[in-house]
Computed example of a mutant assay.
Amino acid sequence: MRALPEGERPWCSGVAVAAGTGSGPLVEDAFGWAVRYEVYDESADRGVELPREERVPVRTGRRHGTVFDLASLTKLFTTIVAVRAVERGQIDLDGRVASYAPELTAAAEHGVTVRQLLTHTSGLLPELPLYEYADDEQRLARLSAEPPTTPPGAARRYSDLNFLLLQRVLEHACRRTLDRLVGDTITGPLGMADTRFRPPSSWLPRIAATEDQRRPWARLDRGMLRGVVHDENAWALGGVAGHAGLFSTAGDLAVLCRALLRGGGGVVSSASVDLLLNAPGLGFEVDQPWFMGELAGRGAAGHTGFTGTSLVVDRARDVYLVLLANTVHPRRRPGNSAPRAAAGTALAGAVG
């Protein structure tokens, strides 16, 4: 990744990259700044850069690496919790959502299943402005009453709502909150101490900034965000949500990737890994060259996050690629996954 002149608006302020195999890491490196801008200047359409001595570089290393807002990579953790609950007999993939969470009245009326949530075939809208409602009771009422716009099972349509409903299913069926389920099921067993919802204030010096959130480009006026979830709905829901809210490091996500490449690493069974990673995938997206580059084509599976994050697991080549960036710092721009795809192509070329 080339050095960027001062004042130029790069693809991201900073990035951490980790790649390796099921046996161990091949490379872990960092470039740029976790915190580069003080504010976004709307009139000049550019970030106001902090003095160089006040910026925070992106770093690597366990317990020292930069912590990023994962955005939709959170969905992968919710998915893994779900398949583990299937293994334990707590939920059924083809069970009706309403049989676990009867308050989800629209899902009950239309017969939405757990599998349809995990494969984005429920027919639900991509999102709702839950952050506009005054309290959690009103947010849940709005979410519960939202009907599918197409018949469940008829077509794939990516939706954050699927994972908000899945969160309700899991919390009812497993009798624990999602943050506890992620800790008990994934991060605890794998020793991922740098991965959690609602990071504590002691982590702040390590956390990458995201957006100077102000209207009209953002949905809320929250100022420059650092250590607080970027997604407005996840924030309104208290920072713990099925679709967004987790923070982590490249090193911690590499641990998860290696576990998947090793057949589940004791977190889930090898049969469940097949369900997760084989087409069409559960939660994971399979063979998507727009962000995987030339890693796509042999059954690679992964996901992206709005803040600039991505993860790819390629069992055919026995490699993984984690790329964590803060592309929304100091403000969001139209999506551009070319650098993600280029990294995937470079890794594919390196390992053959």
Score class of each variant (00 low, 15 high):
S202W: 04
L143R: 05
L225H: 01
S99W: 06
A193H: 02
R198A: 15
L165Q: 00
Q213C: 14
T113L: 07
S202I: 08
R214L: 08
G188M: 03
T185M: 06
D212K: 10
P151C: 03
H172Q: 15
T119N: 00
A106G: 07
L140E: 13
D160Y: 03
E171W: 02
Y131R: 04
D135V: 08
E127I: 07
D92L: 15
L225G: 12
V114C: 02
A107I: 00
D136I: 01
H110V: 03
R139Y: 13
L164S: 01
V169S: 05
S144I: 04
E132R: 15
D136R: 14
R215N: 11
D136F: 08
R96A: 15
E132H: 13
P199R: 04
R168T: 11
G183K: 09
D184G: 11
T210F: 05
A173Y: 09
A85M: 04
L104V: 01
V97A: 08
A154M: 12
V81P: 09
S159V: 11
W203K: 02
V114I: 11
Y100C: 09
P216A: 07
Y100A: 09
I186V: 13
R139D: 06
L165M: 14
A218M: 10
L128W: 11
H110T: 06
R168H: 14
R215Q: 14
T113N: 06
P102Q: 08
T195M: 03
T185P: 01
E103T: 09
R196E: 13
M224K: 13
S99H: 08
D135N: 14
L117V: 10
S201T: 15
G89D: 04
E127C: 05
L104S: 10
P147D: 11
I80A: 06
T210Y: 01
C174P: 12
M224T: 13
G89H: 07
I80Y: 01
V169I: 08
T79H: 02
R84Y: 01
E132C: 05
A82W: 08
V81M: 05
G95W: 08
G123A: 10
I207Q: 08
Y100G: 04
R176I: 03
G111W: 07
A85L: 04
R175W: 13
G191S: 04
R214H: 12
V112T: 02
R168D: 03
E103S: 13
